[in-house]
């Protein structure tokens, strides 16, 4: 677990350093994720080390959003005045984005003839 956590944190750290040093619009953890995908394709050994810890982290992904969620309530002052407008924007845009995304994926997949599995 310690080697796995070290590897994950190192990739996050590297991502953070690169993002800040070069002034990239990409946050550090995302660069770290891209870096780790590359590293995993190069070395199966890293995959073996990281897998159990990474799966543990991802299994409880939704827990990690709780503190930020409580933050919404704490910063309700900012949101409450414009709350209804923001809620409408969120619901409508989410439904639209899911519909557009799923339909375009399915349409293009049918065009290029690929239903590989299920």
């Amino acid at each position: 677990m310690i080697p796995a956590l070290s590897i994950i944190l190192l990739f996050q750290l590297a991502g953070e350093v690169i993002s800040r040093a070069l002034g990239l619009p990409l946050p550090g953890p995302v660069l770290g994720m891209v870096g780790l995908v590359l590293a995993l394709s190069l070395s199966p050994r890293i995959l073996e080390i990281v897998r159990p810890t990474a799966q543990g982290l991802l299994a409880h992904l939704s827990l990690l959003f709780v503190p930020a969620g409580v933050g919404v309530v704490a910063h309700f002052g900012v949101l409450s005045a414009q709350g209804p407008a923001i809620a409408v924007a969120l619901v409508v845009s989410t439904v639209l984005a899911i519909a557009v995304g799923a339909l375009s994926f399915a349409a293009v997949a049918r065009l290029v003839g690929g239903r590989e599995d299920d």
Partner: peptide
């Protein structure tokens, strides 16, 4: 707990 969002994002490299 909040801090672990960063490592969890990196861990998405696995799937």
């Amino acid at each position: 707990v909040h801090f672990m969002l960063g490592p969890a994002t990196v861990a998405l490299a696995l799937p």
